[in-house]
Structures are given as structure tokens and as C-alpha cells.
Design a protein around this nucleic acid. Structure first.
Lengths: 337, 337
DNA sequence: TTGAAAGCGGTACCAT
DNA sequence: ATGGTACCGCTTTCAA
């Protein structure tokens, strides 16, 4: 190993060619003779030369790296296994394409400004944006558009939606599938524990649930909101039981809430899935560990990450923004009959 | 917003000074008159100019970014909330210092080579290394040293330990604290569900457990190994019960294994904490959710991340490598009396 | 205190 | 095919 890294000059000299030739060789090898190519390759092998990516990006104007921008203070997010899955799949996919991932988190308005500034600094070619909160997302998309930064959003943009690439999940159909499954397995009175009011995801799921209940069971719709935490699921289930003591099915908008609901059910002396069938949403690891293992709708986070990267690359090539809607998959375990 | 980003030239021209002066202003403002400073500041404010970080790093030789290198294929790691906590705290701390984080994952030997090459490409000033597996860790530390790359390791390096910065947790004392607590609360026959054999962490914890058992209970030590998964904890607990039917305390080396053990206990008709007290290790979110909530040793991952960043910055300033050993904290919940 | 100019390590255009 | 060379945007002597 040498102290001072080699430069393209060293290689050129060593190989007896000009640096222009070496450069060409490095970038596809067109217009360089077999002869020269071989000599250059030899030298490179011998010296384990690696091009300085920064110099290169200065010259080309491309940085070969993209930012993963987490647009809001979310302690919870990092603790959320789903989020980690997303991040991991993005990191992998990017690595596969030879690009690097720069992580940017936002904890406050100050950091937000700094991040935006950083992005304008020419560090990255594009941005993968995660911002579940609608207002934040809109603002960020706006800023990014303004600086003409290519961006792919996880979730439906809800602003400039036709000029913004995004990848999201079909919440409406997922909810339909979940609720219908409960009905098919014999549940006649189905309640829903929804996420916080506001987000479009919540709306879509509630809509799906409502449509099925109306069609299939003829029973009224029972809806309580939680905040995705276990406790909120527990409390919501209690409220549900108060309103509809004969409830025999619960569709929860997250696995965590489903687990909380099951606890509440146990407290009220109801068995799962005997008395009440339960279905969750996410399929995070907890779903397999819970007692009994939870039937749930799986979010394809790995796939989402992969798509996001692909779509960003398309944008970088000058392609047009597209939106992808991925299906949710029903994973049957033991909280349904 | 303008199309072509501004350059230092534009600012200089606009402010009626040379780019050298602007540059000096940007870097601390020494040797630039009040007069000029004000004019430059004005122009910058007006144009929201941001220096091109790549050009800067080409000129200075410093990149202002560090790599988070995950040295081994670890599907599980990303699903591990602890890992996420670590990552998050590192991202935050780095952000606070105005540096950026480049994520590097390794899935196979190929990627490993690519990563190493990337590091040699001058992208980053230093590396934060996570590689739980001993062999991998040693190899990586070696490679990093060879290319004179500053590095801070999460975990005890086990190689070049006195010339390598690291941050780790005091497994030995943690195990002592956990086992002793069990004994103090009345457990007379304590078994341990340890992690996989091999890693130094496992060894240290086993040692701590042994020392306490020998001192306090006078009973023999019962040890079974798991692989940190829930199922392995379940099975290990069963083996433990077979060997020592009167067991009234279990110290598990991870929360997940503790939860598995509790399930096994239930199957054998033992109550927790009535018949058997259980204590876990990690304090991941699961510990609060489990039934009953788990007493456990908390790993200070946020603190670990912060320290790693701090120590890396020290290295970058030319400081000497140091090792930090952090204490584990006992979190009492309801699986102990 | 300031500015001119020589890099930093590549890329890419233009002759040859 | 190849080499010369003018940048890319910024930092950093060095002289003034």
C-alpha cells in the first residue's frame, strides 16, 4: 500500500500513454487500442489504482450518489423494522448500481434548512424522499422541485403528483382484502382500528374497510383511531368492544395495534381467533413472534426500496417521472380461522 | 431559484472582490476587511450561494464525510431495532457536526472488495465500522489500517486493539449485574441462555454470570447457547429445564431469547416471575411489549453512536485512538420480583 | 488585507 | 487511436 494515492498521471506515465487515454480506458475503453488497454490494465492491477471520485464528479458534474432524505423528526421511524427494511433495500440496490447513499435525517427546522442547503451544494444527483407527514412531504417536494432536484417519493406525493416520481402501496385494496378475508372466514361484525386521522393512507384503508363491510356483512362499520402504538391499539379495541360487544373481527392498521388489541381482547375474556379474529397490517417481525402469530397484510418494503432506486435512475437518465402502486400481500397466520 | 448554480466566481464578481477573498471569507473570514465581508455576505444572502463541496474537497483533500461500514451480510441486523438506534444516533451526531454519512453494506465478498476500493477512492475521511463477527472484523480492521484509514469500531477490535479506536459495552459487568439482581430477588438456581459461542461478548457475559453464580448461590452454573432468535431461546430454556427442573431464574443474552424462554416456561406450566424470574439483554422495544414486560439490561446504543462519531473526529484531527467502555443499565420491569 | 495563479485529479474537446 | 489542453469550482501559497 502506498501513502500518496496514485493519480491518473502516475498510471499514464507508467503505462507510457497520455492521461486522456487512461481516462478513456477507465470510462468504457472505447478508442483505445488493445495494446494500450493491456498496458494500462497491467499498471492498474499492479498499483491497485482507484480513480478519485470527487475529481471525477467535479469534471463531469455528476456525483454518483443519492441522498436518502428523512424529512421529519421520527424517533419511532428508526425503531420501526419496516423502515429499516426500506433503508436496507435502498442501500443494497444503490450499491449494486455502483452509487453511494448519503443519509440525511431531519430533527428540526434548522436541520431541514441545512439539509436543503447541502442538497443544493451539488453533493448528490437525486433524492429519495421519505416523509410520511403530509405537510412536510408537500413542502419538501416543493423545495426539491424548485432546485430542480430529481426525486422519488415513498408514498403518494399529494402535490405535483403527475410530475413527481413515487412508489407507494395500494392501501385501498389492501384494506379490502383484509376485511373481506375476515368476512370470508366467518366474521359478521367487523371493527377497524385505523391509524391517525389525516394521512391519505389512513383514508384509503378506511374506505376499503367501509366498502367491504357495507357489501358483505350488512353490519354497521365500527371505526376507532389509534396512533400505531400498541397501547393505542389496546385502547381502541376496548372502545370498539364497548360500542359493539358482539364484535367477532378486528382489522388493525398496524401489527403493533393488532397486538395491543389482542391484549385487550384477552382482558375481556375473548379468545383469538375463537371469539374474535384479528388481522394486522405491515407484517413486521413482531407478527411472527406474537401469541398467536398474527395474520396480516404484508407491506413490500424491500420492493418499494428497489423501485425507488430504479425510478430515480430513470430520472437521472432524463426519463419521465412515473408512479408505481404496489399490492399488499395477505399473510395468513393464526389469528384468523 | 437559478438554473446553473452560482460559483465562487459569480460571488466574487458581484461583490467586487477576488475569489480568493471570498474563499477566505467562507473559511472563517480571517484576513478580510469588514468592508469586503459585508459585501460578500450580502451577495451570498441574496443569491443563496452554496459552495460546491466536491470542488472544495478536491482542493483540500478532505471530504467531510464518513462511511458507516457494515462489514457482513446481516439481514437480521437491519431488523434489529438496536442496530437502527445506533445508525440513527450516528446520523444525527454527524449531521450536527456538519458531516455527511455514507452507508455501505456488504452482502458478499464481491461487495466487500468494492467497498474497500471505494474507500480507497478518497470519498471519505474515516470509517465507522460495524462487524460483529470476529473474523470479519479483524480482516476489515486490517485492511483499513493498511490504507491508513481512520476508523472507529463498534465492539472490541480484538486485533491491534491498542492502535484502534473502539466503543463497546461492558458485557462482563452487565452480566454480573443481571445475574446478581436475579439472586438478590430470591433466585437460588439460575440458568443462562447465552449467545452463540465464539464472540468475545458471549464469553464476557458467560464469565460474569459464572462468577456471580459461584459467589452468591453456591449452585452450579447452567448454560445453554442460542443464536439470539426467539426460537433458540425457547429451545434453550427447555434444555435448561430438563437439566435443572428447579430453576427459578433465567438470564438470557437477548430480549428475543428471553421472550422465547418465557414461552417455553409457560408451556411447562411455570409462571413468570412467580416460579421463574427472567431477565433479558438489550432493552429493545419488544421488551416493553412482551407479556409481562421484560426486565432487562439496556444497551446504550445511542450513546455508543455518539461516542463513535466523537472519537472518529478526534482521529481526523490527528488525535490518538482510544477505547471507550460503556456501562449497561438495569431496567426493572415485571419479569423479576 | 488582497489578488494572481498554481494546483487538486479527473474529463472531454479538438487536432493529429 | 492518441495526446494536448482547457476546464470543473475551490483552496492556498506568495507577492504586492
Amino acid at each position: 500500500m502506498r501513502d500518496k494515492p496514485m493519480t491518473i498521471r502516475d498510471i499514464a506515465k507508467e503505462a507510457g500513454v497520455s492521461r486522456a487515454t487512461v481516462s478513456r480506458f477507465l470510462n468504457g475503453g472505447h478508442w483505445v487500442s488493445e495494446e494500450s488497454a493491456k498496458r494500462i490494465q497491467d499498471v492498474i492491477d499492479r498499483t491497485d489504482y482507484v480513480a478519485n471520485e470527487r475529481a471525477r464528479s467535479l469534471a463531469t458534474g455528476r456525483s454518483n450518489s443519492v441522498a436518502f432524505l428523512l424529512g421529519e423528526p421520527q424517533e419511532l421511524l428508526f425503531a420501526d423494522p419496516n423502515f429499516s427494511t426500506l433503508l436496507r433495500s435502498i442501500a443494497d440496490e444503490l450499491g449494486r448500481k455502483g452509487m453511494s447513499l448519503i443519509m440525511m435525517t431531519t430533527d428540526n427546522e434548522n436541520e431541514n434548512r441545512r439539509n436543503l442547503k447541502y442538497l443544493r451544494g451539488g453533493h448528490v444527483d437525486g433524492v429519495l424522499l421519505v416523509a410520511w407527514h403530509l405537510g412536510v412531504r408537500k413542502g419538501l417536494i416543493h423545495s426539491l422541485h424548485a432546485m430542480e432536484m430529481p426525486v422519488v417519493v415513498a408514498e403518494y406525493p399529494s402535490v405535483d403528483s403527475d410530475s413527481t416520481s413515487y412508489v407507494h402501496v395500494d392501501d385501498y385494496r389492501g384494506a379490502i382484502r383484509a376485511t373481506r378475508y375476515l368476512a370470508e372466514r366467518g366474521a359478521g361484525s367487523i371493527g377497524m382500528i385505523a391509524g391517525p386521522e389525516g394521512p391519505s393512507g389512513t383514508l384509503a384503508r378506511v374506505r376499503g374497510y367501509r366498502d367491504v363491510v357495507k357489501d358483505m356483512t350488512g353490519e354497521p362499520a365500527w371505526i376507532e383511531h389509534g396512533d400505531y402504538s400498541k397501547d393505542s391499539g389496546h385502547d381502541a379495541a376496548l372502545r370498539l368492544l364497548d360500542r359493539a360487544p358482539d364484535l367477532d373481527g378486528i382489522f388493525a392498521s398496524s401489527d403493533l395495534m393488532a397486538v395491543g388489541a389482542m391484549q385487550a381482547l384477552r382482558e375481556r375474556g375473548k379468545s383469538v381467533p375463537g371469539d374474535v379474529q384479528v388481522i394486522g397490517f405491515d407484517d413486521q417481525p413482531l407478527a411472527q413472534i406474537s401469541e398467536p402469530p398474527l395474520t396480516t397484510m404484508r407491506q413490500p418494503f424491500a420492493e418499494i426500496g428497489k423501485r425507488m432506486v430504479d425510478q430515480l435512475l430513470v430520472l437521472l437518465e432524463g426519463g419521465l417521472p412515473v408512479g408505481t402502486t404496489l399490492p399488499l400481500e395477505l399473510i395468513v397466520r393464526q389469528t384468523t380461522r
